[in-house]
Design a protein around this nucleic acid. Structure first.
Length: 771
RNA sequence: GCCGGGGUGGUGAAAUGGUAGCCACGCGGGACUUAAAAUCCCGUUCCCUCUAAAGGAGUGCGGGUUCGAUUCCCGCUCCCGGCACCA
């Protein structure tokens, strides 16, 4: 019976629709495992190969855990708000609701065909009002706790599209939509104070088992530095300039100060034309230009002098944009002899160096004791600009009342549904298109009942994905974001699989929101962090070794590969390509090798089934070893070596023409099942097994088949391999030594000197030290 | 510059202190076939060698620890990823 994947897939694919075996069972009295893979943005292209790769690996793992008797929660959903759908709507005039529905249906079909064992009863969609009701609710809580405030902030502005852009929408200083150079503009924006949680976000990492690189990325992004704040009096003025420094001991080497052009002091100096020109020039520059690394530093003298608090020396104060308003205090004490940047600036403007002093970090306390300042901590982490002037996002549930100011929409009035609009483009003033819908904007103040206006900004793409892992625990709850008892049962996420590109922002934002909900008492007290393990999946490159992109034309469509090779081969091939977390290039030729393997496996089972009543001892040994080895590999996401072991097994069984009885064939079928679910189901069925192989137990390993009486040991002479010897597993040194010394070659080498020492490692090696 | 991860055959890779290169691709040879495809079998780190036996070299480079190092330690180098005028 030849392997006909199309027939097999068609026969079984529908059997898993609504299949109870893949449901996570709330409160079931088994060990729970919450296995999560990042949900996709549903793009018009459907799932790409990268999705298929990460989802297959996670699916294999989830299937394995189920077979190991765990109660597995393995959910899926769609992160469906976002720019591509909005841009498509701008182009075609079609409501993104419609396109999103079409695309999610297509993706669900792809996932079904790829045999992903998701719990479809828990599917979520971030654009569903029943879902974003709670995204909005979280925002109202942030506001009520003072963690969401509306502030003037500089944002990236596209003068052509007349729209504010988030940093991620600016590519190389240009607008992602039209390619126009962006400018900076000050606009009133909702800002979420994630910096208030900087220390918590650092400290919480100890409660997680993230892989090293993920932890490092988080620590790096938050970037805590310890130092001091030091105040410098200004000559002839009341104000002082406060600076943050990590090296207060360099205070003696300070020869000038620099303040950012945005510093408060600068506003009072604008009568000076040189200063005015410089500040205006700086405003025009984008963040990108200002932080250009190799750029020559520029600045202008402010006319002010500060007093070094430690030695009373007068030092000039400069204004320069290499000092960032957004970090520290927006002012620095410059130590040209000690800091490269200060040095470059001093050389350019011929400011005096002081090379005499010797800094000494141990003096920090002593210097602070002199009353010049106090210890301080600074974080690189910046607050989170939460406003977008886009249509296709969650409306920010806030009302602006002339009497009460900003008022959050009460829970019983949520969700604030996204209204339909005629035009999806932002307005002339840069407000979101929602601003055009007067009847929507005009509302009553929830507090005083007077006339008021709705916020027309929408939330960033991150908002919906910040808490989706909670909703999966209880996706249909109408009274709270998720039932506390259900969260207690399922949380934390045991394994979270995702891309490196989400190791900073998404992971940090979602940890922050979780910690905030924790403080609110909205999530279980005993669970301080949302994710236990975080793994990153690898990247699949095109066959030319470059990132897949439409313009290069190296994109692999998973559907097309599935048409030619079938789901089972596609899945198994992807898992065989290399380690799960590495970067790998697609290789059509290697795909053939995996097809050969799957066919051989399938034929082997068919040729043996029903023909033998017992399996030889050798066969038992091979198959039990396989069950053990693959089990160990799957628990560690080592899919490539698991498949290598299966290949080895089939080769060995075929070569020895081993006769295998149905009981052991059934073991083999269960072992391959997580990788090749359709073929495994067919083989299981043909062995007389009941539907479904995927809810069977992982094969029990009988250790008695794994302990062989004989092993091959290496014979080393001075550490060099000179032969091998067969011996009983528990043979004594004397026995092995005698057997080794019988060998002619060994005798030759031993005769070259005297045996000084013999090292015998049971089951591995015997090493003669000869001199 | 800082942080994280790497460097092993022609290629993807395996081995985490004990026979380096499992498994797979590719390549070479053979079987089957009128022929091709498919399939199956044998070989395939490099050097020396007609071949084989035997030997030598070999996991980025240099050192160290050890009876023994791809694996542990020190120094260097190159590549990939993240962050970066962050005071």
């Amino acid at each position: 019976m030849a392997y006909d994947f199309k027939e097999i897939e068609n026969k079984w694919v529908g059997k898993y629709d609504g299949f109870d075996g893949f449901h996570g069972k709330d409160f079931e009295d088994k060990e729970k495992k919450y296995v999560l893979v990042e949900f996709p943005y549903p793009s018009g292209e459907g799932l790409h190969v990268g999705h298929v790769f990460s989802m297959t690996g996670t699916d294999v793992y989830a299937r394995f855990l189920r077979m190991k008797g765990k109660n597995v929660l393995f959910p899926m959903g769609y992160d469906a708000f976002g720019l591509p759908a909005e841009n498509y709507a701008i182009k075609t005039g079609i409501n993104p609701k419609i396109t999103t529905k079409q695309v999610t249906e297509r993706i669900r079909g792809q996932m079904r065909r790829l045999a992903f064992s998701f719990d479809w009863e828990r599917e979520v969609n971030t654009t569903d009002p029943d879902y974003y009701k709670w995204t909005q609710w979280i925002f109202t809580k942030l506001f009520e706790k003072g963690l969401a405030v509306k502030e003037e902030r500089a944002i990236n502005w596209c003068p052509k599209d007349k729209i504010g852009l988030a940093n991620e929408e600016v590519i190389d200083g240009k607008c992602e939509r039209c390619g126009t150079e962006t400018e900076r503009r000050i606009m009133s924006q909702w800002v979420v104070k994630i910096t208030a949680y900087a220390e918590r976000l650092l400290a919480g990492l100890k409660d997680t088992n993230f892989i090293e690189k993920v932890k490092a990325a988080q620590i790096n992004w938050i970037d805590k530095s310890m130092g001091a704040k030091i105040r410098f009096p200004i000559k002839g003025r009341e104000e002082k300039i406060e600076v943050f420094t990590t090296r207060p001991d360099t205070l003696l080497g300070v020869t000038f100060m620099v303040i950012a052009p945005e510093n408060k002091l600068v506003a009072g100096l604008m009568e000076n034309s040189a200063i005015r020109n410089y500040v205006n020039e700086t405003k025009k520059k984008s963040e990108m230009e200002r932080t250009e690394l190799l750029k020559e530093k520029t600045g202008v003298f402010s006319g002010l002098y500060a007093i070094n608090p430690i030695n009373g020396k007068e030092i000039p104060v400069w204004i320069a944009d290499y000092v960032l308003a957004t970090y520290g205090t927006g002012a620095i004490m410059a130590v040209p002899s000690h800091d490269e940047r200060d040095g470059a600036f001093a050389r350019k403007y011929a400011i005096e160096f002081d090379n005499e002093f010797v800094p000494d970090e141990k003096l920090m306390e002593e210097i602070l004791d002199m009353g010049v300042g106090e210890e301080a901590v600074n974080y690189h982490l910046r607050d989170w600009i939460f406003s977008r002037q886009h249509y296709w996002g969650e409306p920010i549930p806030m009302v602006n009342c002339p009497n009460c100011g900003w008022v959050s929409v009460p829970e019983d009035q949520l969700p604030i549904k996204l209204p339909d609009v005629e035009k999806y483009l932002p307005t002339e003033t840069g407000e979101s298109p929602l601003a055009n819908i007067t009847e929507w904007v005009e509302t009553d103040c929830p507090k005083c009942g007077g006339k008021a206006k709705r916020e027309t900004d929408t939330m960033p793409n991150w908002a919906g994905s910040d808490w989706y892992f909670l909703r999966y625990c209880d996706p249909k709850n109408e009274t709270v974001l998720a039932d506390m008892e259900k969260m207690k049962y399922w949380m934390p996420v045991d394994v979270y699989v995702g891309g490196d590109e989400h190791n900073t922002l998404h992971l940090l934002y979602s940890r922050f929101i979780y910690q905030f909900l924790w403080d609110l008492g909205a999530v279980p007290k005993g669970i301080p962090e949302p994710y236990d393990k975080r793994l990153s999946h690898g990247v699949i490159l095109g066959s030319d070794g470059n990132r897949m992109s439409k313009s290069v034309g190296n994109v692999i469509a998973p559907d097309a590969v599935g048409d030619v090779y079938g789901t089972d081969v596609l899945r198994t091939y992807m898992m065989f390509m290399g380690p799960f977390d590495s970067t790998m290039a697609w290789n059509e030729r290697s795909l053939v090798g995996v097809r050969r393997f799957v066919e051989r496996f399938y034929s082997f089972v068919n040729e043996n089934k029903g023909n033998y009543s017992t399996t030889s001892i050798e066969g038992m040994r091979i198959i039990h070893k396989l069950a053990k080895g693959v089990g160990e590999d799957l628990g560690q996401f080592k899919f490539n070596t698991a498949i290598a072991k299966m290949m080895e097994t089939i080769n060995e069984l075929n070569k020895n023409k081993t006769e295998v009885a149905n009981a052991e064939l059934s073991m083999m079928v269960r072992i391959i099942a997580p990788f090749a679910p359709f073929a495994a189901e067919e083989m299981w069925n043909s062995l007389g097994g009941e539907f479904s192989v995927h809810v069977q137990n992982w094969p029990e390993v009988d250790e008695k088949y794994l302990t062989s009486e004989k092993v091959t040991l290496s014979i080393q002479i001075n550490g060099k391999l000179r032969g091998t010897v067969e011996a009983a597993t528990d043979a004594t040194e004397e026995e092995v030594r005698a057997a080794a010394e019988e060998q002619e070659k060994v005798q030759k080498y031993l005769s070259e000197g005297n045996i000084r020492k013999v090292i015998y490692v049971k089951g591995k090696t015997i090493n003669f030290v000869v001199a």
